[in-house]
Simulated scan of single mutants.
Amino acid sequence: MDWGADRATLLKLYRTLVRSKHVLRALDPIHHQGLRIDLGAFRTSPIKSLYAEAGEPSLGHRRIKLASNYVLKLKSLRRNPCHEVVFEAPLSDFSADSKSEPNFVARTFEHIKNAKINLNTIDNLHVQCPPPWEKHTDNVNISLTKQKKKKIPMKL
């Protein structure tokens, strides 16, 4: 195509608009209002008390937890294509330059490091070869289908 923005411009727009914390923070008031409704709390109730009362983390903390869980699970799955991107690329590839914020991988590794989780202690998950959903055949006995119903005894 000869029209429209080039790839670099589109990626900058995506990173700025879609992945920005500002857009993600727009969901926080909705989350807070939902907690207020669920708990029957006043509009003026402090947000931290809503989280404590509901036993629910903030969306930011939930995002961090989900991202960390994903990276930790990915560490054990060497056959996953994302494993190579996340763990075999030099970490310097994920570092932020002075103009932008660290990306997903760099932020998640920082949270894992702050939680004092040693990635070297995570063992590889050995999946059966081939995986059970591939090349699986069921043995079904259909010998009774060849018989007429009248010839099959009522009690076997």
Rank of each mutant, 00 (worst) to 15 (best):
N124F: 11
V105L: 05
Q128G: 14
L91F: 14
H136F: 15
P130K: 10
F109R: 14
F87D: 05
S98Q: 12
A96D: 03
I112N: 04
F104S: 03
P90V: 13
Q128Y: 03
E110C: 05
T121E: 10
I112C: 02
I122N: 04
H111M: 09
H126L: 15
A96F: 07
A89Q: 12
A115R: 11
A89D: 14
P132W: 05
T137V: 15
E134L: 13
D97S: 06
F104T: 01
E134H: 08
F109C: 08
K116H: 05
P90D: 15
P132T: 08
K116A: 12
I122S: 04
E134P: 07
K113P: 05
V127W: 02
P131Q: 09
C129K: 10
L119P: 08
L119A: 00
S98N: 15
W133C: 08
D93C: 15
E88I: 10
V140M: 08
N139T: 12
E88V: 13
N139C: 09
V86M: 08
H136E: 09
S92M: 09
W133T: 14
F87Y: 15
E101Y: 05
F87K: 03
N103A: 03
E134S: 11
I117P: 01
K116V: 00
S92I: 15
N124V: 09
S92Y: 03
F109D: 06
N141Y: 10
D138I: 07
N103L: 02
F94M: 04
I122M: 10
H136A: 10
L119V: 15
N118V: 09
V127E: 08
R107M: 02
D93T: 05
S98C: 11
E110Q: 13
A89T: 15
L91P: 00
E101R: 10
N103Q: 00
N118S: 14
N141F: 07
E110T: 11
P132K: 00
Q128W: 01
L125R: 05
H136P: 01
P102C: 12
A106L: 05
T108Y: 00
N141I: 11
P102Q: 09
P90Y: 08
